[in-house]
Design a protein around this nucleic acid. Structure first.
Lengths: 169, 169
DNA sequence: CCGATGGTGTTGAGAGTTCAACCACCGGTA
DNA sequence: TACCGGTGGTTGAACTCTCAACACCATCGG
């Protein structure tokens, strides 16, 4: 890592355009969610993933993967969501290490109340400002970046020479 | 906000592709920065902005805008950076309310040490996985989304009927 | 000069995240 | 059976961020 391939002026411009938009957009969405529904975006994501799962329940580890969250983060988050009565945790049958997390009726109601504002925000600041072609492109870009992140994890895992895996969360 | 324009299946796919990539990518970058340089990405951003400013110094409010951070967040961050000796805060002359924050030599060294790893990560997971055309498109997409967020702020400000401005940070 | 208004920046408390242990359990192996 | 590495999940402390309140100063109008 000694001969760094620095970014050209043009590349810097691209990177900055992406970074600025990404940071500002996610901050905007998070703020909207907190103000209108009293929960951070990460919690909304958890509720969404639960609501989409069969029987509205998932193993903790599966929920962590689905909601792009570390196990530790999810554990804390579920504790908070449980306090609100939006979610329940019960032992998994068949594996006494595991727990399944399920969406309560009250949690489903909270999700239903939060969704309209969220979707409206996303539509206004994304689908209303981009052309259909840009949207198609954005989909491909997202898939490519995600794939790139995933393959690095697999490569690190494949080495399995005791190196720490930098892709846990 | 009663007749919500929900997302079509195709739109959901686009949104999810973007969200997944954006969250995973920023988490990856933040983790790399923390592990290799002991600071969160937000702090690196502050150092970068200072290093690019004339005389490597900026008013707190300008630095907050440049680093996409709220004033409160910047204030806490600068306190932490000051503790590391990477940054200094001194009263602004001409306006006794204000403070200017400047990058120290030690801060510049920390930035120089952190940059290679960061740039390498960005290149590997963005420039190496996207085509030139996708990169051009991503730049336009970023600019469009940022512009959309900005115009909403201006609209809110233009109303100036006592409504709170939801675009402060 | 005085008060009203607005901008600049800080502070403290509470919420959320990260990191590094840690415990409990599974599955395979000797 | 006993051991042992690997998995599932939690915990507590330190850290970062958000939000609301505040203090201070500038500026403008009377």
């Amino acid at each position: 890592m000694d001969d760094v391939r620095w970014l050209s002026a043009e590349e810097q411009e691209i990177w900055r355009a992406y970074l600025t938009a990404s940071v500002a957009f996610s901050a905007h969405i998070d703020r909207q969610m907190r103000q209108d529904s009293g929960m951070p975006m990460a919690y909304y994501e958890i509720l969404v993933r639960l609501s989409e799962a069969p029987h509205r329940r998932l193993r903790m580890s599966e929920l962590a993967d689905a909601s792009l969250s570390s196990r530790s983060r999810l554990s804390h988050a579920v504790t908070a969501l449980e306090r609100n009565g939006w979610v329940e945790r019960r032992p998994a049958d068949g594996d006494r290490r595991g727990w399944v997390c399920s969406l309560t009726e009250s949690g489903h109601a909270a999700l239903a109340a939060a969704a309209p504002g969220h979707v409206t925000t996303v539509r206004e600041h994304m689908f209303d400002v981009l052309t259909p072609e840009q949207l198609r492109s954005l989909r491909e870009i997202g898939l490519a970046i995600s794939a790139g992140l995933r393959t690095e994890c697999e490569a690190a895992r494949a080495e399995d020479d005791g190196q720490a895996d930098p892709c846990d969360p």
